[in-house]
Design a protein around this nucleic acid. Structure first.
Lengths: 163, 163
DNA sequence: TGTGAGCGTGTTACTTGATAACAAACCGAC
DNA sequence: GTCGGTTTGTTATCAAGTAACACGCTCACA
């Protein structure tokens, strides 16, 4: 499972339709293995996130669902998003109060996010899993880290060119 | 300005009153140097954050201000908090939609936050300034990082003992 | 072939977080 | 003193997130 040089990130042109289909299939397989239910709404929300390939607010997702006749109440979107996040199919970007589909579902990874402040596209970078950067200092203070997130904001290549 | 072994973090017992007085004095000096105005409201908000030594929502701060007869409108709190954050006297914790006083005002630092999920106390850890961790990977993608934040959640020593 | 437990969804209402827009007051400089 | 910029007062509104409870499906087990 070495980093693949041709792996697609949000910042590189890639066969997007294929990327959606493949990721949904992976999610389906994962759910089957884990006896989770990828219900129509959950599946649709995952697809929507994948289609956009950028951070979307819960209400953005909701309005897509509403447009498709799938319902109009906030909990609808939040519940689906919570499911996706808690099972690793999506991530929450705290800085933006938004959500983005995971680029490597199933893989147990420590994502860091590169967020374009111009177009909101989000790419995942990978932190070397042995890097204990914070861990040592936290341990010295007696603090037990349970989860950590790294979010970097800047300009993506496309917006940089377009400036 | 080397890291001081006796430096106080939110997780260690320390002379809190002194810590407040000293930090406010530092903020005052800094504002004088930079020709910034540490108005009564801004100063009071800083004191409130320092008194708590934990992440506070803007509305928590506002209710303190209101109780003290200083006003009751959200912009009051947000404007003061924006001032404090933009001049380095406080930080915003995205994960919590909350604010915390800066532990090292004036120093140009790259903070990482250790957030106790039990009591919301927040300590700042320091990232080695030469660590380019993300930088290399971002550069390879053509992404220009402008700012980054690291937020770790877990259990602080006090809550860990109390469990 | 129920039936009931657990999960997912529908719905209402609400809390919390954040900002837009404009008016009034303050303050320092010239 | 008066002008310009900053700060504060005020109203209103938008955006994000959740509580609470009812309904209904489905799957296992009797």
């Amino acid at each position: 499972m070495s980093p693949d040089a041709t792996e697609s990130t949000a910042f590189e042109p890639h066969d997007h339709q294929d990327c959606i289909v493949r990721t949904v299939a992976e999610a389906e397989a994962h759910c089957a293995r884990e006896k989770l239910r990828l219900t129509p709404i959950r599946r649709r929300v995952l697809e929507i996130l994948l289609e956009e390939h950028r951070a979307m607010g819960a209400y953005d997702v909701l309005s897509r669902l509403t447009a498709e006749g799938l319902g109009a109440h906030p909990p609808l979107a939040y519940r689906a998003l919570d499911f996706l996040v808690s099972h690793g199919f999506a991530h929450r970007i705290a800085r933006l109060n938004a959500f983005v589909a995971c680029g490597r579902p199933g893989e147990n990874h420590r994502p860091a996010f590169l967020i374009c402040r111009s177009c909101n596209s989000v790419a995942e970078a990978h932190i070397p899993t042995d890097s204990s950067l914070l861990g040592d200092e936290a341990a010295a203070m007696g603090f037990k880290i349970e989860s950590a997130s790294i979010e970097a904001e800047g300009i993506c290549p496309a917006c940089s060119e377009a400036n």
